[in-house]
Design a binder for these strands. Structure first.
Lengths: 349, 349
DNA sequence: CTGAAAGCGCTTACAG
DNA sequence: CTGAAAGCGCTTACAG
């Protein structure tokens, strides 16, 4: 319980060891040419005093703090800190933290630095990761203006090529999901997106529209707040399934909407997968453990985070980055919600 | 894509505005007494240049960076970054980040600062939160030695009163769970803990032993690595349920062990809740969505994180903290795994 | 109302 | 092999 005695500085060590600050610094950092016994003594004294270099002073001098910040855009439109059942961001953050540590960096979670109340420390990092930027994202504009290197995960839909970004292949992923619904027997496939203006929603919508046109399917699109979660999925299920021409397949971008859609269908006596096929665009724990389990796209948050961190570090080190090769490669995990027992005959019918 | 032109400093602003650094600093921070039009001009120039005070320099001067670090101990013994289905830590971290922001701080996720490869930035924060410290935790020792204020969440089992901590009421929680199992009809209740040497495992074990003695119940305790997850729960179920005197109730501290235990029981033809009652000591998504759903203790990670951050900030501000009043108040969420249809008659039998 | 000077705790040429 | 000096970008008494 001690906040009393101030932390020892390099001066304290120098004085007690009877050498200069320079020598302490060199001895502790293994630089310059210092006598073996001097190094020994300095290290001992530093240890006795509990000396630890002040990271800010060091950072100031080396203009490198050793910190990467992470701005998760969708979290700001979600009501709560870390909503239950949304594990993409959580796993992304955890993986990014570990990847950062591998490079000798720490990961700092920040809030929108363009907001008035934002802590000054939100701009204190050496570089920044922006997950799911929104259209004309002011945070990207600010970072660019402040010359803080950053990597976006998912492009700014209005400025796809303006900034360094890991471009998620959302349109390809969308086709993967829609083709699977078709293969599993669906003929009237609806799309349920979120309302955030990020590339995920925008590109999924575009991919769906093209796919629907190609297959001569009447587009059925609904958008629900990401915030609405399971309940939003339930209400949209009621809306679509009680309409004139209800869908027999639905692609819900968020795992929570998908779970809600299944629940809503059940309330209406619509069986999944028998009467309705459901695919989620983002895998979450609840998709794995619900009844029925829900087919979902695994967006590979852990791998994506690592790619993003690696790219950012290369940027910081002034090394070249081949952005085109950074493909997280999502994968469709097929589960009960698209697996009919009587099944596959219908597909080729 | 620009890392070229260096970021503008206070000197650039001063020069361009035709004033001194002092004046720029005062004008921008609303300190001192500066002429209205000077303030105006300085702000305009700063804006034109995209000037943002260097947080490190400011931090160095004010000896306050505006960053709180978070060390989540159990994560280091878990193999993977953010394991699926473990949402306590994730929700804790998210909530802590938000609470920190409310106070004008950012939250930095760090790895064990006592480890050789740890980034220097891991000691760069103004204060630190240590979630679930282990017995004689070297990180606590280090922080104390470096005079970095910290708050532990859960005590160091070997030094319960040595450091500022939010003492979780694990023994009380354990009784809550065990009494519920008894009420629901269990007579031979087993305990499955993790193997990390933190207060959670230690105090649950102690609480169980006392409770068992009081109720004349033969103690049945098993420990499984936290890492083992669902699979660990399954194997321990096999071990216990095929033994001489199998339990008819089990309290698994981790949600994943509980889920695995239920799965293992099913494999053996042991029905939950009919033949076996199961309670999890930590609520997770999978406990809510599995079949049957699993009764669990909600440890209130979101509230706990907020309490911890608030306490740490008070510590940093030199304000008094009443540690005794910081009680997260867990709550038992009763679900199918302890709800027998024929039910409550057995309880009073 | 404004600015010169000192200093936060380090590192890094550079001189000896 | 070692140290005096400069300087990273700020803030803060203090003098004018």
């Amino acid at each position: 319980m001690s906040i009393d005695a101030a932390r020892p500085t390099i001066n304290d060590v120098a004085e007690r060891a009877g050498v200069s600050r320079t020598t302490v610094s060199n001895a502790l950092n293994g630089k310059g040419t210092i006598g073996a016994e001097t190094i020994e003594r300095v290290k001992r004294v530093a240890d006795e005093l509990g000396y630890e270099p002040n990271a800010m002073a060091r950072g100031l001098r080396q203009s490198k703090l050793g910190v990467i910040s992470l701005l998760i855009r969708p979290l700001e439109s979600l009501d709560t800190a870390m909503p239950e059942g949304v594990d993409y961001f959580l796993r992304f953050a955890g993986s990014a933290a570990l990847a950062a540590m591998d490079h000798g960096y720490s990961l700092m979670l920040i809030s929108d630095p363009t907001k008035p109340g934002a802590p000054p420390s939100s701009l204190a990092a050496d570089g920044c990761l922006v997950e799911a930027p929104i259209r004309n994202d002011p945070a990207l504009t600010l970072l660019d203006r402040k010359r803080i290197p950053f990597v976006a995960v998912g492009v700014d839909p209005a400025r796809a090529d303006a900034f360094p970004a890991i471009a998620q292949q959302t349109e390809r992923d969308t086709r993967l999901a829609l083709d699977h619904l078709l293969d599993a027997g669906a003929r009237r496939v609806a799309l349920v997106t979120g309302t955030d203006e990020n590339s995920w929603n925008a590109h999924a919508r575009r991919g769906y529209e093209q796919w629907a046109a190609e297959h001569g399917i009447e587009p059925m699109i609904r958008a629900r707040d990401e915030t609405s979660g399971v309940d939003g999925g339930r209400t949209v299920a009621h809306e679509l399934l009680t309409g004139d021409a209800p869908p027999d397949g639905v692609y819900c971008l968020t795992g929570r909407h998908a779970a809600g859609f299944v629940a809503g269908a059940r309330e209406l006596g619509v069986g999944v997968p028998d009467d309705l096929l459901v695919v989620a665009g983002s895998d979450a724990v609840m998709n794995r453990t619900s009844t029925p389990t829900i087919t979902a796209l695994d967006l590979r948050p852990v791998e994506t985070a690592r790619l993003a961190v690696d790219a950012l570090i290369r940027l910081l080190d002034g090394e070249p980055v081949d952005w085109s090769s950074l493909d997280p490669a999502s994968e469709l995990v097929v589960r009960d919600s698209t697996s009919r027992r009587n099944g596959d005959a219908a597909v080729t019918a």
